[in-house]
Design a binder for these strands. Structure first.
Lengths: 206, 206, 206, 206
DNA sequence: TATGAATGAGAGTTCATTCAT
DNA sequence: CATGAATGAACTCTCATTCAT
């Protein structure tokens, strides 16, 4: 933490964007050094090898991710309000760190998914907070368990970004620009409320 | 077309699984030949180059994907029933072709996503059928437009598979085994109905 | 000789032009088969291997070359006339068989010039006839020996074709078109006569 | 520039001789590295690719060639003397750089001769100086234009080297050894003078 | 800290050639 | 005669990584 040399940071930044753009295998250390404007060997001086550099990039995201969501969740409010804020924070975080979901997904599929644990840490906060927000409302098991809602909510957010770019043409405007993102947030709020409503009705009915 | 030389098929199959496991850049032609049990040069004999081979793999999925969903959608029934069947077909298709979403996602992010058109073709059927199933129920624009539900639904399905493996430990059992998949389908059905209900209430209320 | 299969001839022709255009190493058997419109394996059926095919191509030139010059030389006339005809025939032959000098030159330099004998056979006729035409006029040894004139004459012809294409731009018109070739012939005639004159004066003076 | 890393020079040298011996296509980077005694990858480290390395080899010749001829031409003397010196310098240069004409010729024929411009630069000095030496003596157009003499002179030099090796057996001694070269120079001097004489007579007679 | 030089391994691709049919 | 399939060797070039300075 001391005061990480400015060059080391430039390398990390370059690695970040490149890994996000082209994936681990599609990015060469030469590319990273070039974009960072440093000598190739320096990359190995600061980060032992390509793999470790990748790890650092991902880890940084995990930390920031955790912090961003924590703030959103810990504020006061009803369940609906808390989940709205959580969704908003999630959307905002990914909008600002487009590489993050790409890196995560790669991490899962690529290279035999050897580091499941690492990935789990990455999504753990959202899972945990979703579960806490739905505590007492959803059953512990079965198709309405909180974890299913976690998968649905996070999928609703992530998929927007994944396919957002691709759908641009048929969307009319760019869905990932500010208005598109605001619209998506509105959809997510509606989604949260519709599901809470459904859960409530179920509780009342049974 | 008839029998397309058994070796060529073996190569295609090997490429399929490897591209799915390690991505385009993470898979070498040597690997493919090895897994197919053929000479490396034979890969180039049947498929002109690595890129073309990848294309073939992806294209085959598109076709099967389209067919699988079409059958599910075109049968009779209420909107709810049709969407349930669509979700089920989608889940089943991906459960049987785990590589497909990985390949698609890679196609989008990797290498600048130059072939947006190809990807669009890949998700087009689901988008189209979702839109047709919600016709008259959802507005054409805004946060409740059909396309938002498309992104939500497909995200709810895809994300289950993406994170399913990773969540295994905290899930108790393997979520991607038959019982887990059945449970997810039940969740998706509930999801569809809760959203249709929400849409109906909105129509009635306004 | 029987009646060489038409396909075999097509292969020979294709090989001829391709070897001339791109050289031995720059030409692949695939290229040859493609241009000949036949299966690659057929090339090996008719000509045992690439090297042998090349040999055949070169040999055919030798024969035609020999015949073309012989006719020109054997007709009656003064030394000047005979040499004029020889030059003309040489120019005409190469104009019609542009590949020939290229193949010859490659044969000399490429692959260690292992087949000097073959090349010698190729240029032998011109050497021999030049020597016979100058018999009694030039000394047997020294800088005015017939062989020097052979090198000068053949160089004057070959170099015209070698650099002709390259000089096109600074030449105004294409030097290898009909008028350019006629002009070159005129130059060669003048050259022959000037040298004969020089040789005569020498004889008279000494 | 100063010392340009000794290994880089060794590579250039190896490339030079190999390209000269076997041509561009006939020379592999492995060969070059081997002869230079360095790692194959180092060739690409210093010279970006095979083509660029070839270019460097050729270019170096152009420069030396130009310098060698310039010195010979610019000294004082009659036309005859200047042309003699030019011929001598040309012969000497090629005798010392046997690869040069081979590389040039290949450059013309191989690979469609796409780089005519480069080749032109290579022969430009000789063309220009021949033209200047014959200025006022030869007509601007027609079969006695200076450019025809350029082709004749350069052909008389180049052809000597091209066929020199091949003729060795029938020559008695090696024509490319020192005495043979001296004899050729004598021939060329005689040639130049005979042609100047012929041109003079023509001027007087007409 | 920082870098130019160096390398072994492996990438995708083409090659001449063989062989069963 | 003719061909599609098959292969081992070689091709150019890039890779992550090391090391002396």
């Amino acid at each position: 933490m001391k005061k990480d040399n400015e060059r080391a940071k430039r390398i990390l930044k370059a690695a970040d964007s490149l890994f996000g753009e082209a994936g681990f295998d599609g990015t060469s250390v030469r590319d990273i050094a070039q974009r960072a404007g440093v000598n190739k060997a320096l990359v190995f001086y600061y980060y032992d090898n390509k793999e470790a550099l990748f790890e650092r990039v991902v880890q940084r995201y995990y930390e920031e991710h955790q912090i961003a969501l924590q703030a959103a969740f810990e504020a006061e409010g009803s369940n609906s309000e808390r989940l709205h804020r959580l969704m908003d924070a999630y959307v905002d975080f990914i909008a600002e760190h487009r590489s993050f979901p790409r890196l995560l997904q790669r991490r899962i599929t690529e290279r035999g998914g050897a580091d499941v644990a690492l990935v789990q840490r990455g999504i753990a906060p959202l899972l945990e907070w979703t579960e806490r927000a739905l505590e007492g409302i959803t059953p512990a098991e079965g198709p309405l368990a909180a974890r299913h809602f976690f998968l649905t909510f996070s999928g609703a957010v992530l998929n927007f970004f994944t396919y957002g770019e691709v759908l641009s043409p048929s969307w009319g405007s760019n869905p990932l620009a500010a208005p598109g993102i605001a619209e998506r947030k509105a959809h997510l709020h509606w989604l949260v409320d519709a599901l809470l409503e459904g859960l409530n009705r179920r509780g009342a009915g049974s």
